[in-house]
């Protein structure tokens, strides 16, 4: 069948209109709820004002001066860095290992995949409430299990040294399904011919992993590392629900500091300045990661 010239011309235009219409909600979301708040945040980071007062006073870079001379800021930065270091390597490695595991064909594989991924689809706040109860020192299930094994009860969320790893462990459990799915998609995109050729050459499974799988998944790794880094810097609900930044500031992350500065201490200009600092840190880290994990391999 031959399309008439006019219909052939009209069709792409109609498609573009429909495509544009479908893109509109996402575009509106990005512009209104992501970029516009960022612009407002930057413009208000040079003001002093409270959330409930309409009076704003321009104070130049004083908020930034206060940030960089504040011990609390460095504490929160250190806690955030530690949290990211606890979370990112474990989550990426575990996600990758799980992806390799569920990439095999075995009975019930779909159930395993679903079971690992379901927590990632649940609310972080709900997960935090549940883990808060599980970590309860006297009556929580985690300590009950430890006791059954003869291990003394732990103060998971009220011990200065245990609180941050405990939160990180709960979040890794919840989110590991996401890197798993991304790695799984990457694994299934690698042509089987590479493995078949390697098998003919007599390579072992570990060698195939190092020489084929990991190099070809470099871009996937970059994506997962960048996304996990961003998420780990922005995790708010677990800290808010489980520890409120305590004990003794041991879980006082930068994002929680921003919340407390804006909504409790009513220093909204300062909180905006902190947000700008966090944005710059995240942007720099992301660019560094993208550069370090860049790949020129095409397949």
């Amino acid at each position: 069948m031959v399309l008439s010239a006019s219909r052939a011309r009209r069709r792409p235009v109609g498609g573009m209109v429909w495509g544009g219409l479908f893109l509109l909600p996402a575009l509106a979301d990005v512009l209104v709820f992501r970029w516009w708040p960022l612009v407002v945040s930057v413009s208000r980071s040079v003001d002093q004002y409270t959330l409930i007062s309409q009076a704003r006073r321009y104070i130049g870079l004083a908020n930034f001066h206060d940030i960089f001379t504040s011990a609390t800021f460095y504490t929160s930065l250190k806690v955030t860095g530690l949290y990211a270091l606890l979370r990112i390597p474990f989550e990426v490695a575990l996600g990758f290992a799980l992806a390799i595991f569920v990439n095999q064909r075995f009975r019930g594989m779909a159930i395993v995949r679903t079971a690992v991924f379901v927590p990632a689809a649940t609310s972080l706040a709900v997960m935090s409430v549940v883990w808060n109860l599980m970590y309860q020192p006297q009556y929580g299930i985690v300590n009950s299990l430890l006791n059954a094994m003869g291990i003394p009860a732990q103060n998971f969320l009220t011990d200065v040294h245990q609180a941050l790893p405990s939160i990180a462990a709960a979040v890794i459990w919840k989110d590991v399904g996401l890197p798993m799915i991304i790695f799984l998609a990457g694994l299934q995109g690698i042509p089987q011919e590479f493995y078949e050729a390697a098998a003919i050459d007599g390579t072992g499974a570990l060698q195939r992993l190092w020489t084929i799988t990991i190099p070809l998944l470099r871009r996937t790794f970059m994506y997962v590392v960048v996304v996990t880094t961003v998420f780990s810097f922005l995790d708010f609900a677990p800290v808010y629900v489980m520890t409120h930044g305590g004990p003794q500031h041991s879980t006082y992350t930068l994002i929680y500091y921003i919340y407390e500065s804006a909504f409790v201490n009513q220093s909204v200009g300062y909180a905006n300045a902190l947000t700008v600092v966090l944005f710059v840190i995240l942007l720099s880290l992301t660019l560094l990661q993208m550069k370090a994990l860049r790949s020129d391999l095409e397949y």
């Binding site: 009220t158 011990d159 305590g246 004990p247 003794q248 407390e260 409790v264 009513q266």
Partner: peptide, 21 residues
């Protein structure tokens, strides 16, 4: 006029005391 700030400061210190400062 800064009750939120006062309450936060006292609450955080009290919580720290319960965990063994």
């Amino acid at each position: 006029v800064g009750y939120r700030e006062l309450d936060l400061g006292v609450s955080t210190a009290l919580a720290d005391l319960t965990t063994g400062v």
